[in-house]
């Protein structure tokens, strides 16, 4: 029998931990994290929690300017739900949201997929070009598109007339089709931003999966459906949610494009625009708060749906089991 020790050095025994720690050290250890968090918590308290609480209280009151108010219970909410102007604003906002999500996001995904192709030259340049509009302030975007969408002299009408001879250069983008104009303007501004999200997601699609699918004989569509789409779904659903939230909050762009008005037949009235109108122009902050809470509830439902969808896709990929270490 060999009496020789193994050559590998055994880990040396470490010195024993101190038997006790002083109570003051314990206290400072428990206080220190809160000290670090304090500035953030203070800001959240002052600018989020207190206003949220205030808005909740306000939504149950009828106000006549900031000074006068009376408790009305839930009648502000009943009023909002039976208000035809609210529903016009809701319809307009919904159309804008639908347009933004259904046009902007697929286009963003297409550009991301194009830029994700191997061997594309000038990727960084194109990424910068497509992303840069998001750096432009909304006021400037409104100014640019106000000029572009003008009847007869606007570049967009001129361009379309050049391409389609039958196009009417007097096409009233800002009067009759303000939501379409808004969709196009936000498409220009935010498409590149969303593209960056998709590009990041696409770069995480396992290369081997795509190669396996290629060897299995899958065409482009099958590879997209079975490899790319499942892999980018978590990011995709997050981008959809962000886009819905952003679209429901649209205010500055129509406000500036329509120069403070709500457009012909309120075609440019959005929910936040209506909230602004009732709260800060008519002075009924209680009613405006009820509108605000209604938007919040709609967005919470959307977020809940997104969570459900994400959870569903995770389960379908077995993600929950995978985190548990995999069944044998």
């Amino acid at each position: 029998m060999s009496s020789l020790a193994a050559p590998a050095t055994l880990p040396g025994s470490s010195s024993p931990a101190p038997a006790s720690t002083s109570a003051s050290a314990d206290r400072s250890r428990s206080v220190f994290p809160w000290l670090l968090l304090a500035p953030f918590l203070l800001l959240v308290l002052v600018f989020t929690i207190v206003p949220l609480f205030g808005a909740t209280v306000l939504s149950t009151q009828q106000t006549f300017g900031p000074g006068t108010s009376r408790f009305v219970g839930l009648s502000n909410f009943r009023g909002v739900l039976s208000d035809p102007l609210f529903w016009t604003a809701f319809k307009n906002t919904f159309v804008f949201t639908l347009g933004s999500v259904c046009v902007q996001l697929p286009l963003a995904l297409c550009f991301a997929m194009l830029l994700n192709q191997p061997g594309i030259r000038g990727k960084t340049f194109f990424r910068l070009i497509l992303f840069s509009p998001v750096l432009v302030g909304v006021v400037y975007v409104a100014m640019i598109f106000f000029v572009l969408f003008q009847k007869r002299t606007g570049l967009i009408n001129q361009l379309l007339a050049g391409i389609l001879p039958s196009w009417d250069v007097g096409f009233a983008w800002l009067d009759q089709y303000i939501m379409l104009a808004l969709i196009l303007a936000t498409l220009w501004q935010y498409m590149g931003f969303n593209m960056v999200y998709f590009l990041a997601a696409l770069q995480n699609v396992p290369k081997e999966l795509n190669e396996a699918a290629k060897m299995d004989g899958a065409n482009w569509w099958k590879r997209f459906r079975h490899v790319t789409l499942p892999a980018i779904t978590p990011v995709g659903s997050f981008v959809v949610l962000l886009s819905i939230i952003g679209s429901f909050q649209v205010f500055e762009l129509p406000f500036l494009l329509l120069q403070g008005s709500t457009g012909v037949d309120n075609k440019g009235l959005t929910i936040v625009g209506y909230l602004y109108q009732t709260g800060f122009q008519s002075g009924d902050l209680g009613y405006a708060s009820a509108i605000g809470w209604t938007i919040a509830i709609v967005l919470a439902v959307c977020a809940g749906l997104q969570r459900l969808l994400s959870a569903g896709s995770e389960v379908s990929r077995g993600g929950k089991v995978a985190r548990g270490g995999g069944a044998k």
């Binding site: 999966l209 190669e211 699918a213 499942p230």
Partner: peptide, 11 residues
């Protein structure tokens, strides 16, 4: 081809 990371379609 059989890949090192199996390359199975997770969904």
């Amino acid at each position: 081809m059989v890949f090192q990371n199996y390359a199975l379609y997770p969904h």
